[in-house]
Design a protein around this nucleic acid. Structure first.
Lengths: 337, 337
DNA sequence: ATGACTTATTAAAATATTTTAAAAAGTAGA
DNA sequence: TCTACTTTTTAAAATATTTTAATAAGTCAT
């Protein structure tokens, strides 16, 4: 079967409009490498179906002012949520990341029942949901939970398939650190196409999300970013030196700083990423300089990535939002209203 | 300016024919996702220009046998070479990796002069060379040598630009480990789209080439794969534990095995690659099992990459060949004969 | 050998896309 | 205000690509 070039172009136009606010036909023509008349036809069709709204004119820049178009935020919504040990946090958003509704659902019985009961009302609702994205603190392979210390009841479950069956909607399942690093890179445009690492120390041990040139690294066995196991000392791993740190952001002890400096050095001498992100639930700004100094003991400073502190919950939700919106925009069918 | 879809299709057809031996129009139509008649027109044109040769018929598989076409190995050649401390090894190849001519050129004076004198005769020759690929034991950024312990005279030189000026041909410059890992992945089809690491212990210290989902990792500052600096012990780096190893393949000492086991563990717990390749100039087959056992001390064995021994010179040349051929096929202009 | 089936090729018609040229709608300066 | 200039939009013509149908060339079972 041949691929449908029109569908790919349509998806590209949607993403440019909804995700990057490209609003004129000229601009769309440039970024998609497709001619003006072709874009115009697509947009006209999208206006008829209610997917695109015609705004006024753009401020002119020396010539005839361009008409401005925008992606209709009401056309599709997207349900994003993440599952923790005892609660599920969710946000219903539009395709421009705006929150329509949000909340928390406590888990009383099984994780799966709680998830089902949270999702059902959204499906019955007349609101048009295009896709669901789910974050889990577990290793995920093709939508299947392969290792889940935080909620053993979900282990080995094909969560993606289960949720698709229950809702009839496209579903994407992602690991928490992978979602966070993806979300961070999309929130901060300077890092979008770079290689970055996002470290979370977590309640059940540390983990890292790794982005390579903007693509999430999953690894051969879903083990990528399991930095606990790094042999950084004669008789101790990274985890050994970090496991006694009290939960929450605080000023770190000297040996914790050294362990983190070695961790950064390890990435600098292998992947050599542009940025290394720590989480605001783990440490505070003043720790960064100390970590940087610790890292300088191991390699020249110009190879050390930029050290930053990310906003964990926002980055996590951003990654899920992005994944959900992309899936929504990719799965709208030709002719859908 | 719009991109030229016809040119991209043409390049795709060339690569499928020359690099993957796709020989019938039906197959080309499938792999390129372009219709049969369109491919047919392109092929007819390529035959007229001498770029493609019509062979006989393919063995039929139940229906009308397909005509078989092949990329003309005489249409363009490609010069590949790598620069070492005291010599330059070169191979003139066709677009199907076949060696047309090879040799070694000793460096008496400066590296640059030797390179120029080696290249010049090939340019004057009537043989049609499509591109030149050059391997160096140095950090390369956009064709510029940024760090070169092995040949200081080339440091900070824009070698790509220099060679393009001198020859008027497209040129690609690549780091030795990057070329080797790329070459290995193309020679071994099972690893082509995987993540793999290729380690060379080298004369001037170790270095690794890293492939992520088939793409070479270059890093933020060209420092990727500089594993010398890895802090693997309380007071010692990877380099400290490996630097006294005698040059050449031999059975390793216990502490060298441990250092390599830790190195493999470091990659397994970060990138989690499919395979980890050692070089046949550094160690022998029986070392691999020992390294694997050493690695098992640090993490569960199912996450350890497959350990293998590569053929250094062949892998290096293969990577350069591949880069050169790709560049050749990409830069043939419409209408060239 | 014949007919049913399979796959490849060719030719013609239908679509889709780009290119070109002309018209429209603004700014800026004389 | 008029003219020159710039950029967007529209319309028409030229290209490129795909789809459909018809034809060609083989295999296999009977």
């Amino acid at each position: 079967m041949l691929k449908d070039p029109q569908h790919e172009l349509l998806v590209d136009i949607r993403k440019q409009m909804a995700l990057y606010s490209v609003s004129t036909i000229s601009e769309l023509s440039k970024v998609t490498h497709v001619s003006f008349p072709t874009i115009k036809k697509m947009i006209d069709d999208m206006i008829v179906r209610g997917e695109v709204i015609e705004h006024g004119q753009k401020a002119p820049e020396g010539g005839r002012p361009a008409k401005s178009y925008g992606y209709n935020p009401e056309f599709r919504h997207c349900l994003t949520l993440y599952i923790e040990a005892r609660e599920i946090r969710y946000r219903l958003i539009d395709c421009q990341h705006q929150i329509v509704e949000d909340g928390v659902s406590l888990i009383t019985d099984s994780h799966l029942e709680a998830l089902g009961e949270l999702v059902d009302p959204f499906i019955e609702d007349k609101t048009k949901i295009g896709a669901i994205s789910v974050g889990v603190a577990a290793a995920v392979d093709m939508g299947r939970i392969v290792f889940a210390p935080e909620y053993p009841s979900l282990a080995h479950l094909d969560l993606k398939h289960w949720l698709m069956e229950r809702t009839g909607l496209p579903v994407v399942i992602e690991n928490d650190m992978n979602a966070a690093v993806y979300g961070f890179s999309k929130r901060d445009e300077t890092t979008t196409h770079q290689s970055i690492v996002y470290l979370g120390l977590g309640k059940n041990g540390p983990g890292a999300g790794i982005l390579f040139d903007g693509h999430v690294a999953r690894g051969q066995s879903g083990f990528s970013g399991e930095v606990s196991f790094l042999p950084l000392y004669d008789d101790a791993s990274f985890y050994d030196r970090i496991k006694d740190k009290p939960y929450g952001p605080n000023v770190l002890k000297k040996e914790e700083i050294d362990a983190l400096g070695r961790l950064v050095a390890t990435f600098a001498a292998t992947l050599n990423p542009h940025a290394f992100i720590f989480s605001d639930v783990d440490l505070v700004q003043e720790d960064l300089l100390r970590i940087n100094r610790a890292c300088e003991r191991y390699l020249p400073s110009r190879h050390i990535p930029v050290l930053r502190i990310g906003q964990w919950e926002e980055d996590y939700f951003s990654g899920l939002a992005r994944l959900g919106i992309e899936l929504t925009l990719e799965t709208i069918q030709r002719g859908d209203v």
